[in-house]
């Protein structure tokens, strides 16, 4: 027993260091973005103010964040919606065995493990050959879907695995059509999970960089704009932007977790 508790403390200490490794640097730029106007890129902090956070919304010499943010926001919402629709439909189909199920399954999974640069290059070549111009809302949209749909699909499979088919069988025995059964029985039951998938799909898209990077066309999404800034900007404005967009992501994740927990609880009652 004595020996065991020593292992516990060693592992707990390791875990603590790991959390520090995960969050420490991020915390560093949060703190540095609160410097005074004379602040620099490294510690120690020079002054304290919200100057740099305000600077993000001002006209910038090196770039504008409001438009890329709106683009990423819009794209994220569309991607999240499409991911849900597509994965719910596929999830419904996967409840019964059908020929080709394995193929569709592996096709979806392989999208996760194909090196991202290939997706970007490949879609770029397709657009080039077809003589289409690449844009964040066309080629970029496609690239994002290859990243978000597999996650949505895997979560969906998990949800339907745990789903009790007795409810919908009862509905069907009472003469409800497939469509009616879906909207009145299945949909309300999976709604909390759908909300979770929506937020996760949104944040995955909102922060996506690699798959979009070569094919976003003229107008940048927010991660691409930030990447462009890293080479030019040498002021804490960069950290301030990082802080704001990370807080935004945190808020979304928080809402997802909170709402999921709440809705799941309400359903149990």
């Amino acid at each position: 027993m004595q020996k065991r508790s020593l292992t516990f403390y060693l592992l707990a200490a390791f875990f603590g260091l790991f959390v520090l490794f995960l969050y420490g640097p991020m915390l560093g730029i949060f703190i540095l973005s609160l410097q005074g106007p004379e602040g620099g890129l490294t510690f120690p902090m020079k002054g304290f103010s919200f100057y740099w956070l305000g600077q993000v919304f001002q006209e910038q010499r090196v770039g504008n964040f409001v438009e890329p943010f709106l683009r990423s926001l819009f794209l994220g919402l569309v991607i999240a919606f499409l991911s849900i629709v597509v994965s719910v439909l596929a999830g419904l189909a996967f409840r019964s065995r059908f020929r080709g199920a394995n193929t569709v399954f592996y096709l979806t999974i392989s999208s996760l493990i194909v090196p991202s640069v290939l997706i970007s290059l490949g879609i770029g070549i397709v657009f080039q050959v077809l003589d289409l111009s690449t844009d964040w809302f066309s080629s970029g949209l496609g690239a994002h879907l290859t990243w978000t749909v597999p996650f949505a699909f895997l979560i969906m499979l998990g949800i339907f695995n745990r789903f009790d088919p007795a409810y919908e069988e009862a509905a069907k025995d009472l003469g409800a059509s497939d469509v009616k059964t879906f909207w009145e029985i299945i949909f309300p039951l999976i709604l909390p999970s759908l909300f979770g998938i929506f937020i996760l799909g949104f944040t995955l898209s909102y922060d996506e960089f690699t798959r979009t990077s070569l094919i976003s066309g003229q107008d940048n999404t927010l991660p691409l704009e930030i990447f462009g800034m890293t080479t030019n900007v040498t002021s804490p404005a960069l950290y301030a932007l990082g802080t704001l967009t990370t807080l935004f992501s945190f808020t979304m994740i928080g809402i997802a977790i909170f709402a999921y927990g709440r809705m799941a609880r309400r359903q149990q009652e």
């Binding site: 790991f18 959390v19 995960l22 969050y23 420490g24 640097p25 991020m26 560093g28 730029i29 540095l32 890129l41 490294t42 510690f43 996760l200 944040t203 995955l204 922060d207 960089f209 991660p223 930030i226 990447f227 890293t230 960069l238 950290y239 990082g242 967009t245 990370t246 992501s249 945190f250 979304m252 994740i253």
Partner: peptide, 19 residues
């Protein structure tokens, strides 16, 4: 452990500069 995964990779890399 999983929350940082849902935030921007670019920002996470930038945050190593002051360290």
């Amino acid at each position: 452990c999983t929350v940082p995964f849902w935030t921007s990779n670019i920002i996470r890399m930038i945050s190593w500069i002051p360290v």
